[in-house]
Design a binder for these strands. Structure first.
Lengths: 208, 208
DNA sequence: GTCTATAGGCCGATAGAC
DNA sequence: GTCTATCGGCCTATAGAC
C-alpha cells in the first residue's frame, strides 16, 4: 500500500535507484536525518532494506546525495537570475520573487529541512556550491550597491529572503496555532507575489 | 569536565531537576528530539542517566517540558506588547523589534528548534498558548486593520517576523557558505534594529 | 536521591540464498 | 539485482543496592 503512493506519484517506470532516492528525499525532508529509519525509506520505495544498502552503502551516504540535490533545488534556479548582467535590478526582483514562490509552493518544507540539518551538522558547504563568490560578484549585488551604497547589501537580500521564505518556514507554527488554514495559505502566498516586489523596490528608495 | 560547563554557566547552586532541565534545553535545541541521546543530557548535567528518568519519567516527557518553555520564551514576552491598548502602532513596532532581537540574540537557534520540531510532530498547540484568540483580538491587529483595511493584516505580521526572525534562521546556512562571519553577525543584527521599524512603517504607508 | 548494572527493543548493516 | 534472516551495537528505561 505504501508502494502505491510512489506509483501514483510517477506513472512512468523508475529505476530502483531513482525510487530509493525519491523516497529518501520525501522521508528525510519530513523527519530529518536522525528521525528517519532506513526501513521507512525502503518501505516507501517498495523495496527491501538490503537493497537500499546495496545501492547507497549507508544511510549517511544516501542522505548526502539527498542534501546536495536539495541545496541545488534551493539555490540553483536563483543563481542565473541574480547573475544575469542584462536585466535591471527591478526585473531581477520580479523574477526572483516569482521563481522562489513557485519553487517553495511545490516544496514547502525544503527550507526548514536544509536549514535545520545544516545547523545540526554545521558542515562546510562551500565545495557543493561556491555561493559566496557568486554572490559577491553577482550583477544583483553590484546593482544594489550602486543604488544604495550607504547600506550593507545583505540587508536587502536577507529582507527579501525573509519576506519570501519565512512564510513557508513559519507555516507549521501557524498551522499548529490554528492561525491559518491549509487552503488559505496558497491564496495568501499568491498575494505576496505582488506585494514583495513592491515592498522591496520601495525600501530600495527609502533613504535612512 | 562536561559538568564544568554547567557550573560555569550558573554560579549559584541549582537543584538536580533544574540542572537536568537546563541541559536538556541545550542539547535538544542543538540536536532536535530524534538526534538527542538522554545520555548526553545526563552527562552535560553532571548526573547519572537513571536520575533523569527518576525526575522526568521519559525522554518524551522531558522534551515536552522543554518545548513548552521554548514556546513561552518565543511568544510570551511579545504578547504583552501587541495586546497593550495604550501604545500606538508605531510604538508597538519599535518595542517588538527591540524585544525580539534581544531574545533571539540570546537564543539564536530558538526559532529553528521550535519550527522544525513542530513540523515533525505537527502537534496541536492551541492548548499551550491560545495565540489565535489573542492575536485576533489584539490591539496590534486592530490598529493594523484600521490603518490598512485593504490588506490581510497577516501580511504585515509575517513580513515583520520574517525581517526579524529570518536572519537567525538563515544564519547557519550563511555560515556554512561563509557569507558572514560570527562577529559580523551581531553587528549586522544591531543595524537591523533601526532598519526594521523604519521599513515596516514605510510599508504601512505604501498604498498598493 | 543517587548510583551501577542490565534488560529489552530498535535500527543500520551484512551474509548468503536465489 | 533482489530477497530473507540475522548480527551486533546502541539507546531508553528500570531493577535494585546504597
Amino acid at each position: 500500500m505504501l508502494r502505491e503512493k510512489l506509483k501514483n506519484m510517477t506513472e512512468k517506470e523508475l529505476t530502483t535507484e531513482e525510487k530509493i532516492l525519491l523516497s529518501a528525499s520525501k522521508v528525510f525532508t519530513e523527519k530529518g536525518f536522525a528521525g528517519t529509519r532506513t526501513r521507512d525509506i525502503a518501505e516507501h520505495a517498495g523495496i527491501n532494506l538490503a537493497l537500499l544498502n546495496y545501492y547507497f552503502r549507508s544511510k549517511e551516504k544516501l542522505f548526502e546525495q539527498v542534501m546536495k540535490a536539495k541545496i541545488v533545488l534551493l539555490f540553483g534556479q536563483i543563481l542565473p537570475i541574480i547573475t544575469n548582467e542584462k536585466t535591471t535590478l527591478e526585473e531581477k526582483i520580479d523574477l526572483a520573487t516569482e521563481k522562489y514562490i513557485d519553487i517553495l509552493s511545490k516544496n514547502p518544507n525544503l527550507p526548514i529541512f536544509v536549514i535545520s540539518e545544516i545547523q545540526k551538522k554545521n558542515s562546510e558547504l562551500t565545495s557543493v556550491l561556491p555561493i559566496k563568490k557568486v554572490f559577491n560578484n553577482s550583477s544583483l549585488i553590484k546593482q544594489i550597491k550602486e543604488k544604495r551604497p550607504d547600506l550593507n547589501p545583505l540587508h536587502f537580500l536577507v529582507t527579501f529572503l525573509g519576506m519570501t521564505i519565512f512564510p513557508f518556514v513559519a507555516k507549521p507554527v501557524f498551522r499548529a496555532f490554528d492561525i491559518i488554514q491549509e487552503d488559505e495559505f496558497q491564496y495568501f502566498i499568491n498575494e505576496r507575489k505582488k506585494l514583495i516586489p513592491i515592498w522591496i523596490k520601495t525600501f530600495l528608495e527609502t533613504k535612512i
